[in-house]
Design a protein around this nucleic acid. Structure first.
Lengths: 334, 334
DNA sequence: ACATCTTTAATGGTCGGTGTCATAGTTCCA
DNA sequence: TGGAACTATGACACCGACCATTAAAGATGT
């Protein structure tokens, strides 16, 4: 039988209230303190969190729902979240998508039961407005990543997709490119909207022509980028390709290399995300870095602020600036 | 105030024991059942897990300690674990390493407090025997990955590193290579031991010479593989390089390509792990696939078996077979 | 109709903590 | 020295669920 606070009290010849007081940092008599410490040591006592949480109003626990943990972006995000939670004495319960058709709402139910103090929903996938509404109605604060699906009084953290692509276009323009193709992302993801808008806006503001044949859609997979590149190559005249994510960029590069083109001599290729192997492919990929770890930290801090009902800036959406990373897959056009 | 079982009972004009019985699947009167369902619906009632766990001996919760969540291997492992836990009605509490010098034992303490039913320790890093002993003494079963650090009555799940490398050597031999260099991993990791032993054993059994200049050590990073390759190139005569992990293989390939060599024409390069981008680099990497997701599933099932005290096979170590994946970075030598 | 058996409902104790409150013990100053 | 003020302490109710025990109601048999 695992020892309880009562056992400690008996062993230290005092009452459980005194032990409880000691455990919570309220000063007690020097001699009893020593006796308590000794008893805890001897019995290898550990307080029962479930009992504590039952009587306190806060659980010091937050829920995290991840829609697909094999997505490589999620690791640094979870790391960032973990750091902040840990530093603030919170722990996390995770729920991960599984193949079966469980829905967000199922997980929400579990989190209700868990009595968590808050929820971070980690997903960049298509977002259903009804699900987001559900989350807004939860009895605890919720922070989610990416788009807010039109629900405006929910807290979101996102990278500034728009300005990331704008930076890429400006950079390519600066080094001499005037004919820039674009591989867009899947329509149903929020980030696609912002990134494509960034492309259009930057091209227009620089007075560059946008040939419709130079714009293609990918599903953001390697294969998608490969296929899109193949289609782009049916028309000619462009000197650079912006892929709206790194995986597509990799696929596009593979396609070009298979056709015997050299990068960046024949085409400059740039991506978006800065996935970890971007610097280790050949040639190393010029891209825009998403500050994933920082995004995780921001989300966690955001949530903790909500839980503590800190006087918050009215802004419910926190956008983090991406960073242009120049490598060898881009250069002056000939 | 969140509703309790008592509120449901009052609303449904019955007693809390009846509601409890209904919640636990014990049949009750048809009419009261309907009243209870209606009351639960109306009040939006969710049972309080903390209260339930306090009185039951099992928490239906298992702890997961991850030493570095940014390691890309961990995603599929965690996914596999999650699937099995979820299918069995368990949830998970995660603790992740942070920069500060927290130790395993700190997390163990937290899990004691959490009253978890078991622990999965996800780490392939150097393992301290004392820490492993600590885990063995925990009041709940523990499963860990990789090496058992010499503690033989603890449960471990690992890939068969030895036979993975043996397969690579045999494959290279089969397609004609007789002079095979090897980039070993860091000494203090268990897998290195088995992989290097596999190389030596296979080379010997095939009667192939092992030139000491053809064996080099990397820290398993991209940079480490790059540096190791540079050193290997100081001597000549080999036609193939086995890197003991994919990241090293990538670094080695970058090094060769920078020096103007063509892969696989000049050198065949093969790796170990099958990280997700292995098929999207150019040329696509021949490697040995670790069944990470399956390893996660195995670990979780293993743990659940221990918790249920299922009549277990006496084997405390479960080894999963890796799979040879042949791609374009390897071919016949000229 | 009465006794027996079975199903359903109500009561109260319990888990391991927290927090309130009254009391006993100590200190302080008039 | 006596009363006020203050501390440290232990007794006890309580959080919200489960469950064993008891009580009541309904079904069955002779």
């Amino acid at each position: 039988m695992t020892p309880t606070i009562k056992d400690v009290a008996r062993q230290a010849k005092t009452s459980k209230s005194t032990v409880s007081r000691f455990l919570n940092g309220i000063p007690v008599n020097k001699k009893t303190e020593e006796a308590i410490i000794k008893a805890i040591e001897e019995l290898n006592y550990h307080p029962n969190m479930n009992a504590r949480r039952l009587v306190m109003d806060k659980t010091q626990e937050i829920g995290i729902i991840v829609d697909d943990i094999s997505n490589r972006f999620y690791s640094p995000i979870l790391k960032g979240i973990g750091e902040v939670l840990d530093a603030n004495g919170y722990s996390a319960v995770y729920y991960t998508w599984n193949k079966s058709k469980r829905r967000e709402t199922d997980f929400l139910r579990l989190l209700y039961e868990e009595q968590v103090d808050g929820l971070i929903y980690v997903s960049f996938a298509r977002r259903d407005q009804a699900d987001v509404e559900q989350m807004r109605e939860a009895p605890f604060p919720v922070v989610l990543f990416g788009d807010n699906a039109g629900v405006d009084d929910i807290h979101t953290v996102d990278v500034d997709n728009f300005s990331g692509i704008v930076e890429l276009v400006h950079y390519l323009y600066r080094i001499g490119h005037r004919h820039i193709a674009y591989i867009a992302g899947p329509d149903d993801i929020g980030a696609t909207k912002y990134r494509s808008a960034g492309y259009v806006s930057a091209m227009e503001s620089l007075g560059l022509a946008m040939n419709p044949d130079w714009i293609c859609t990918s599903d953001w997979s390697n294969q998608g980028g490969y296929t899109a590149m193949k289609k782009l190559l049916q028309s000619r005249g462009f000197t650079a390709v912006i892929a709206s994510n790194d995986e597509s960029a990799l696929g596009a590069m593979t396609c070009l290399q298979e056709q015997g083109y050299s990068i960046p001599r024949d085409f400059s290729v740039v991506g978006f995300d800065d996935i970890d192997i971007a610097q280790w492919i050949f040639p190393a990929l010029t891209t825009v870095r998403q500050p994933f770890e920082q995004m995780g930290q921001t989300a966690a801090q955001f949530l903790l602020d909500c839980i503590d009902k800190k006087p918050m800036d009215s802004n419910r959406r926190r956008l983090l600036k991406p960073e242009l990373i120049i490598r060898n897959s881009s250069s002056n056009p000939n």
